[in-house]
Write a protein that binds this DNA or RNA. Sequence first.
RNA 1: GCCCAGGUGGCGGAACUGGUAGACGCGCACGACUCAAACUCGUGUACCUCUGGUGUGCGGGUUCGAUUCCCGCCCUGGGCACCA
Length: 917
Amino acid sequence: MEYDPSVIEEKWQKFWRKKNTFKTSYPSQLAKFYVLDMFPYPSGAGLHVGHPLGYIASDILARYKRHKGFNVLHPMGYDSFGLPAEQFAIQTGQHPSITTESNISRYRQQLDRIGFSFDWDQEIRTSDPKYYKWTQWIFIQLFNSYFNLDTNKAESITKLINTLSREGSANINAARHKDQNCSAKEWAEMNTSSREEFLQQFRLAYRSKSMVNWCPELGTVLANDEVSEGYSVRGGHPVSQRMMMQWSLRISAFAERLLSGLENLDWSDSLKETQKNWIGKSNGAFVKFNVIDSSNKSIEVFTTRPDTIFGVSFLVVAPEHSIIKEITIPSQKKEIESYQKTTKKRSERERQTNVKNISGAFTGSYAKHPVTGEKIPIWISDYVLLGYGSGAIMAVPGHDGRDWRFAKHFKLPIIQVVDGGDVQKSAVEGKEGKIINSNFLNGYEVKDAIWKALENMKKNNWGSPHVQYRLRDAVFGRQRYWGEPIPIVYRDGVPETVDLSELPLKLPEVDSFLPTKDGDPPLARAKDWNLSKNLIRETTTMPGWAASSWYFLRFMDPKNSTTFADQQKINYWNQVDVYVGGSEHSTGHLLYSRFWSNFLCDLGLIPFSEPFKKMVNQGMIQGVSAFVHRLNNSQTYVSSNSIKGRLTQRIPVDIKLINERNELNISGFKNWLPEYKDSEFELNDGILTVEREVEKMSKSKHNVISPDSICDDYGADALRLYEMFLGPITQSKPWDTKGINGITGFLRKSYRLLEKDRSDIESLGEKKIVHKLIDKVTRDMDSLSFNTSISAMMIAVNDLTGLKEIHINSLKAFTIILSPFAPHLAEEMWELLGGETSISREPFPICNNEYLQEDLIKYPVQFNGKTRFFIEVRFDMKAKEIEQEVLNHEKTQNYIQGKSIKKIIIVPKRIVNLVII
RNA sequence: GCCCAGGUGGCGGAACUGGUAGACGCGCACGACUCAAACUCGUGUACCUCUGGUGUGCGGGUUCGAUUCCCGCCCUGGGCACCA
């Protein structure tokens, strides 16, 4: 009887499917446990071994929790709207739904082979109208809500409208992006269009202008990473910055709650830190600078360092700022306009990244310093972004690096206002030191001076304290086809939501997935999309993150057609207990889902505001790429170790053509691609060696390893264990199939334990082995660091194999512990041990600490911190006795050699250290 | 540039709260089994100028004792708002 995964795994996968072993039960008397994976975007490339890393970890946890008696929700689905399918559609004309469908079935096949305990009855697909009906429904709720700052909650817009008609806007304290006000009378006199325009400043889903990377050639907006040096990555067309009217969501209203909500979450500190930085709360002030001369224009700046007000030597305004037109003097007009033009070509990313490249232009105007009354020049530069603060800054070159570089470059004065360092040599940026050259602030420590300055500005009316968040409202419209249509109709240009009975508003058929000639999004091509001449439909679609912002709720009740999820079910399943996914989502997706949860909670639709109690970020699995060296201008390939200064090209070659000793499969290489058919080789003993490198797994690098091929060769259990054994779940690590032999060896040994002679009574020795294992595995569960659990299992198997005979209880306990990790083998072993049903809900063994106690403890004996020898003593020996034992030891005198003992340190159960001088 | 994470043998990694650095596995070497190979089993395996010394990216510091704490650097990976 040999371990044969191909037979065992198929048998048990069939069994699970037939018996519906992992069906989620509801209602249930059991305590619930919700463990969720970030669902995948089904790409055409299929899964590689990196993808299931997190799924395996969460599956182990899900299976463990079933053993622990929980009712587990462990679902899977597909985030099936997205750009790649649309791109493929543009190229081939094939409808994205077809591509998506076939990608999904490929994913499903791949997932099924790994033996996950997903309940596939709970599957969801975000591109399914039955799903996106509710994504659209939530959008409508957002449209119909505003954020009341008095109650600190999202509330119905109807309430706001009532207030407006009763008393106007005077007492309304709400999150808004404009400052338009009205009296009750004015409100009453407004027509529909003006009212809507007025309400837009409050709605949580609203239209506003925002800056985008516009590519006229492609007729679309591009992501920052689709733009390089002012040209589109795809096609190389020019891209420029442009203001565009777009749907946005008012996430900024929730900034403070998203920040404070982090406190009680069981997330890693670094993840919380990333979110905090993204939200970017800063305490500071708006300071008003009046422009000298004409009219009464003024520039408002935001600063976190009002204490440095006396160090201001110029103002910098974002090149897109509307005031520039009004303040630029005629002689500077040309320069300013040409600078604005250049800026348009740079993406926001480039502007933030490339800080060494200093540029700017002078408007020719001056502002009056609000305290000293001095003349301050007004410049524009692309290092100031319109989207943050007020789009203008007061430059304090002495104490800010960017301002300093700017001042040096344009030879502007640098004033020192905090002591320490020399501001002519570099900016003094720290928040420590005393204020100098600053009138009433002189002598104060920075911290006190900030406070003092805020006080003074309030008194003398030169500014107002303000809390600023970096978090911007999220642009919600996309000029694409393959996404959820935004359920909005414009009646005579006034946006209104479509009637709920019309949901889902399905994606229309179009003749092409490209924008129209006029640059309208693809939906504008749909026939009969508009209802009439004055009833025009929205043509943008929702972004990828819309659907994923609430999918964890739909998993609780995926087939409900009357509501997004049943209240009772939401109450039962509640928050996600453990959420596993990549750290690349640590800001976007995680922040947006928290935002939507907060919002739905305010509306009373869900009983919690934080969706994910515990979050675990899995690391990446990198691929090992192989390169062959080809002599330049030839078809001759040489071994990587015999290049010897010859000029060669490195050519990536399929990793499957390389064996364990880095040797190329030469005939395989010739047949791999037609271009290599006539290759010649310079061989050493018939061998050509290649070079290896670790990098991201990707198709173009030919270093992708698919889970299927591993399942074929070694089995799913081996794949599962090996992925976990590679290292801590949170860390990135390279894949190297070689190491999997250790795992198959372990599985075989585990299976062979069943052949051992059985004993009638459990020995103390085997109890110690088993309980040590229970203890380790149980403790590892929390952190999902299963690499150490697996090595503990290996140790246990080795130890048990060493015993003459084993009791069936030890075998059963071991099999249950193994089962979350290698479920197929465990089921098979369980059956052979006499189990009559699936092992999946057998109670997990409990550790008895009694068996963890060792009788003898080996103490390392150190002299001045260097280990010299060991003594073995009973575990309960007192410190004094140990000390005597050491002093009496024959070797002790050797190390003392006339010196005297200054101190003896005994750490119980750890170490003995003698300090000698 | 800013933010976050990481750097330990030939390789993946282990080391609970400052207490034997290198568990476990791969690889490698030797041996057993075998006609032979594979499988399996056993032994060894950080490095060096080896009765001793050096070692956890580099340079300092705190400590009886530092992979672990502090300060200053270097390198690699991830994110930076329309890729998902």
